[in-house]
Amino acid sequence: MDSNQTLTIDEFNLSIENIIKISNDILDGWTLHVNKENDNGKYITKKSTISIEEPGKGNPITLTYEHHVVFSLSYSVPMICFNVWKADGSVLSMEEYLNINQNFDDSNMYNTITQLDHPVLCRPFLTLHPCKTQEIIEPFLSTSKNPVISWLTVVSSYVHLKILEEYIKHC
């Protein structure tokens, strides 16, 4: 693997620990989770709640996103998994999610957002399919101090995740 450099799990762990450190400084709400039974057991999560107009009905609804940044051993890339639920706790199905998401047009939404099992929790989550992640992250591997942050700044807007400018100073 000389030409196709990939992110190692150690680099991933360093990157997310760095994210936690920044987040703690600015109260951004990222939490570190460690599952000791897994080699790729470290991941970080963050919840954010937004108000959105229900498509077709126009009334405001409250949605909570829970984003997970976790390492995929099979693709050797970070993955962004997320679930979205309404105020009563019921989780949106993939169709419901795509229905309210404005960032994708019909032609490619299924190629971009998909449902996969979370690499650590082994439960279905919505995710940006990791097959294109290597392409995005590769240029950052040699140039960024924190490739995970650099990658997140590219993809976060597709999944309603806000990355504050403080993080960008660290990559």
Binding site: L27, G29, S48, T49, I50, S51, T62, A87
Partner: peptide, 25 residues
């Protein structure tokens, strides 16, 4: 959080814990 128009009180699985985990937030 300014992205939500409502003032929301959240409960999750850690709500049942003995101690409150404020996460400084």
């Amino acid at each position: 959080n300014k992205d939500c128009v409502n003032s929301i009180l959240e409960v999750d699985s850690t709500s049942y814990n003995e101690n409150f985990n404020d996460q400084k937030l």
